[in-house]
């Protein structure tokens, strides 16, 4: 009987961990959450090993460790917060282990997103406002908003089609560069540099970069370096897209 409960505990904990890593959490937080779940379920001596591509977990003194691969990584901070909330509720005893697992499955089936239109408008506003903050160029505010919005739409669309983040970033930055140069040629804007700097901002890999530093500081060297490479690849994809279009046009 205790073995059955242990099995359910490992399944729930790994499920929670996979959702958190897939949504872009740092490794130390995942380990912490899994350990808390194990302790609160009555298995204080369980062991867990987490990297950003997979997790292993076992209860000390029993056979049958379990493995959970993590194949896709996106950015969704709301999911991390929700798993965090569920873990707190479980620790407080207001939900059982079975309910916890059900809630996680439900969270995965219909994740709470901001609507696509709100995301588009946000991308436009990020571009325009940061262009003004960085460059003090008030004339190009509106055109930067529009180009940033279209750039994010390209990024989102290609990501839906191909599911390769680097490719989407590359194509989006090519589109942004081309539109910025054409807009200035058509006298819609003044400075190609300022428009591109603003429009690229929604694509900046902020989450992998911050997590890479945090992981390395926390001693999770494998995950930290892997994430650093991820951030570097994103930066190279964006940079080479812009560089290519600047050389061609």
């Amino acid at each position: 009987m205790s073995n059955n409960r242990g099995h359910l505990m490992i399944k729930t904990a790994l499920h929670a961990g996979r959702i958190m890593i897939e949504s872009g959490s740092e490794v130390a937080r995942v380990e912490d959450t899994i350990n808390r779940i194990a302790i609160n379920a009555g298995f204080p001596d369980s062991k867990v090993y987490v990297t950003i591509t997979g997790m292993m977990m076992s209860i000390s003194g029993e056979e049958n460790a379990q493995i959970e691969p993590v194949s896709s990584r996106t950015i969704d901070l709301e999911k991390i917060s929700l798993v965090n909330d569920y873990s707190r509720q479980f620790a407080a005893g207001s939900i059982s282990l079975e309910q916890f697992d059900d809630l996680l499955t439900k969270l995965e089936q219909n994740p709470p997103y901001f609507s696509f239109w709100l995301q588009l408008i946000s991308a436009g506003l990020v571009s325009g406002t940061l262009e003004v903050v960085f460059r003090n160029n008030y004339q190009d505010f509106l055109i930067t908003c529009v180009i940033g919005l279209i750039g994010w739409a390209v990024f989102y669309g290609v990501n839906q089609l191909a599911r390769v983040r680097f490719l989407s970033e590359f194509l989006a930055s090519v589109a942004i560069g081309a539109m910025a140069i054409l807009a200035v040629r058509a006298n819609l804007g003044n400075s190609v540099d300022d428009i591109i700097i603003g429009s690229v901002m929604p694509l900046v890999p902020g989450v992998p970069l911050t997590n890479a530093v945090r992981d390395i500081l926390a001693g999770d060297l494998v995950s930290g370096i892997a994430r650093g490479i991820e951030a570097l690849m994103s930066a190279i994809a964006i940079g080479s897209g812009i560089a290519m279009i600047l050389q061609v046009l």
Partner: peptide, 15 residues
């Protein structure tokens, strides 16, 4: 503008 930029970037990350 920084306030707006921070909040809208948060929306892109689904805060």
């Amino acid at each position: 503008l920084t306030y707006i930029a921070t909040i809208t970037f948060g929306i892109l990350l689904n805060v």
